[in-house]
Nucleic acid binder design. Structure first.
Lengths: 233, 233
DNA sequence: GAGTGGTCTAGACCACTTT
DNA sequence: AAGTGGTCTAGACCACTCC
């Protein structure tokens, strides 16, 4: 039995979103309509919608309505690309190079990725900012979750937009583990810097709205002109 | 024009906290009592309390009451010390060395710190984890906000606990800017590592519950056995 | 059992956006 | 003017904590 009413309304709406009933960017029914459909009061429907908004699953705007969050290049960068310039402004990088291939999953990838895939796509990218190399990213996703991904190359600048719009998979949270290390020969060559240069290495797990691990991403950032921004509250 | 009612209740409670009417750790009146004092309904008082909880200013526990957030070494580390070990567990460091001195504020410190101080305390610390040097921290705070701080040496492991309990100044949020660089001669010597070793350098601004910049802190982390953890959602 | 916060209801009115 | 989310009220009952 569903314990809290607003929780079952929350779950019901999530189900409709993952099932495609509510498409990305689509307007949801009003609070009163949702309340009617689930047989609860408007205040309870409201609480479910507020929880959905807190999780980033929907967006609400007074006078307009409630909408399924649409991943755009802008909000994808803002939420998940944490590099900022000296003044704290968002860094919007360019894509310099991209390689994508299919390969067997490593043990760690098999264990961590949702669906325990045997095969994965590996997407290697080099990004630049103001004509200078900025970072190297190595993304790994399950082949079975993203069939035909390799035929879509070149991929758009922001992967999460593609994941949502082409595969209905919405990334809503991510966890980075950051360390400092020398760039090394391979990454150094890819970024055009000395192998001894210090870089931030970020190891990420990206989760969808059912909190499944969809992507593993290893990033390397040059921080000469930018920094990785963290807000704690 | 009249503000939002729950906002004025929120502000009223914040005032009582900064003014000392509600001390750290103290239990607040119940929702109904607060509603009565401010002349609003219980639901409106409730909304104000929920907002206070979201900001980390109070903590609510069903069946017990609402309490002014008490900064403890545990929650201070958990919220503001982002280093985790390989398994994602909180790193609890030891204090190896501490130096504190009074000096003139730099231009940047004068501009950024609340109160535009001419004089500051500079607290330099070296921390270790599992018998190995872990990080170097350089904290700077206004002399006028923390009179007599230098006489309190040696300071407790977690500064924010002292700030709240001895000076009534509650740090509730912080922003870190992270870069990678070589340790350098001075920090390398302090940490007992080669000057060429890559480290994460973190530049922090710490804010109190009125969003005033209370502390500037430059940290240097060795990330051989730990990482800096970031959660995005 | 008394007191607390947590959930839920039913209704009113306000503020904003669009037609 | 119509429709949306945002605020506010007044009351009921539930779940948890402590005596």
């Amino acid at each position: 039995m569903p314990k809290k009413l607003y929780q079952s309304v929350f779950d019901g709406i999530v189900q409709r979103i993952v099932g495609g009933g509510y498409a990305p960017g689509m307007m949801l029914p009003s609070e009163f309509e949702i309340a009617g459909e689930f047989g609860v009061s408007q205040g309870t429907a409201r609480k479910a919608l507020i929880e959905l908004e807190k999780k980033g699953i929907v967006e609400r705007r007074q006078g307009k309505g409630t909408f399924v969050t649409l991943r755009t290049p802008e909000n994808s960068l803002f939420h998940f690309f944490r590099l900022r310039d000296e003044n704290g402004n968002q860094v919007v990088p360019d894509l310099l190079d991209e390689k994508i291939r299919k390969r067997e999953a490593t043990t760690r990838e098999h264990e961590r990725l949702f669906g325990q895939p045997e095969e994965v796509f590996e997407i290697s990218r080099v990004r630049s900012f103001e004509q200078k190399p900025l970072c190297h990213e190595l993304s790994v996703v399950s082949v079975s979750l993203f069939p035909g991904l390799i035929e879509r190359a070149p991929l758009p600048n922001t992967l999460y937009v593609l994941f949502q719009q082409a595969y209905g998979c919405a990334i809503i949270s991510a966890r980075d583990k950051l360390t400092a290390k020398p760039a090394g020969a391979v990454i150094g060559a890819a970024l055009g810097v000395d192998p001894e240069v210090s870089v931030i290495a970020g190891s990420r797990e990206s989760l969808d709205l059912l909190e499944r691990v969809i992507e593993l991403r290893d990033s390397v950032y040059l921080t000469d002109n930018v920094h990785y921004s963290v807000v704690m509250d």
